[in-house]
Write a protein that binds this DNA or RNA. Structure first.
Lengths: 246, 246
DNA sequence: CGCCTAGTTGAAGTGTGTCAATGTCTGTGG
DNA sequence: CCACAGACATTGACACACTTCAACTAGGCG
């Protein structure tokens, strides 16, 4: 069964092996995602994009850095966060393949981006992207729809974080991750979480201790089981959905 | 001085008189707003837009309604909210002139919109807007930038609502309103709030009682003074900024 | 002028934050 | 491959802030 180890440091990010169970490959095409790029649009972008790779646990950019590029994630998971006063930190999102990275204001990134796994990105100079979007309005519409999608997600998250108790925030979070093949094994009914408890706590706007109690509660109520801190088995999906649906 | 009365029910929304003090006229052009439309772009939009007006305290649309139109606010204030379980409600925004109204998903509005004052809107059929945006990529870029702006605001709000105590959320809220000529009188240093305490509480994700205590605290600390529930005088701006800046 | 709604204030309950200690994993080096 | 160190995660006890429940006040509209 599961040995409960974390993902191997040198592993290719598209194949994460958890115990004996293999988590499927990530692919930009074929993900159950709204607003993804068509092949033609990807080719268009490829003309102005260059591929860059980052190792695990590296900073891509920090808030306040000059924003020269917009990134599209090809592979891996990126943590997007903002620093608050006195070492506090808010995690705004965990971005995965297909997501757009690099929200800026007045030429500066407003968030920091950090790789949780090895990551492959396509980056585009804002200047050339600007030109391309003006010349290809179908492509631009994709970006607009993607932005609208992000806006809906942000509003959703706002409601979850301000109105739901910790165990329901956690339920919502787990459901989110179950929607992504790379980190959900349907055979074992288990989710692999590629981030630490501190990351999740900062994402759900609670303390790590409170998060631990939320995990304990879901486990006590038979909703989940914990193999290891990062591998969670779903034991009662309908109850999880009941708790986690906004 | 101020008679502390609420805005007159039949008043034209572009001139709100508070006591002896007159609050300036609202205008789409000239507002200190990023991402506003140029005159040329407004003419473009005008071709497919029709002007509609709503009286005060009316529903424009409800969440779940078929989304046929996107709205641009010309005059007045619109409350955007989402219903939660059991009569609870979250207010996502108070929209003013220049704001885009009508975020939808799968052909349905995801929020409800309600007028707090008399409101003038321009509404555009999504179908014709879709066409227009594809044919005018400069205009589409405006919409994209506006969406990015909304996204930044949502992230900001997320941090305020999850990390700041009630009196600081209130400070942030008051500062927001001070940025808008229609509701801020520089001469008297006073802000007029066109919504009820319940609206503000639902926006700040606190109970009305907690909001009342937050008002009391800012007043006790000499930051504000209350003429009437809806008219607030700013007594210590730098402290308000200190408290309310994210 | 009086009723009804909106707003404020007080007192008690509850859940999350905080502080501290213990337990457990992970990734390193031998 | 194994063992160990340090980071990560969990659990318990207590404090405090917001919520809840209730009473009271004030303002606006009929």
């Amino acid at each position: 069964m599961s040995k409960g180890r974390a993902e191997p440091a040198g592993a290719s990010p598209e194949r994460l092996t958890i115990g004996a169970r293999r988590y499927g490959a990530a692919s930009v095409r074929g993900l159950p995602f709204a607003n993804l790029l068509t092949r033609k649009e990807q080719r268009e972008l490829a003309r102005i994009a260059e591929t860059v790779t980052y190792a695990r646990r590296q900073s891509i950019f920090k808030e306040g850095d000059r924003a020269d590029y917009l990134f599209v994630i090809e592979q891996g998971v990126v943590r997007v966060s903002r620093d608050l006063m006195e070492g506090e930190r808010h995690v705004l999102a965990f971005f995965r393949p297909g997501d757009l990275l690099g929200l800026a204001e007045e030429g500066r990134y407003i968030n920091s981006a950090y790789t949780l796994t090895a990551v492959t990105l396509r980056r585009m100079h804002l200047r050339s992207l600007h030109e391309l979007l003006l010349s290809d309005s179908q492509l631009q519409l994709r970006f607009l729809l993607k932005a609208a999608h992000e806006l809906r997600m942000a509003q959703r998250q706002l409601i979850v974080l301000t109105r739901k108790p910790p165990h329901q925030r956690l339920a919502t979070f787990l459901l989110n991750f179950m929607n992504h093949r790379e980190y959900f094994s349907a055979v074992e009914n288990s989710v692999y979480l590629p981030m630490t408890r501190d990351d999740i706590a900062d994402y759900l706007a609670i303390r790590p201790e409170t998060l631990a109690r939320a995990f304990a509660r879901l486990e006590r109520d038979g909703v989940i089981a914990r193999f290891s801190p990062r591998e969670i088995r779903i034991r009662n999906l309908s109850e999880l959905i009941h708790l986690g649906t906004v």
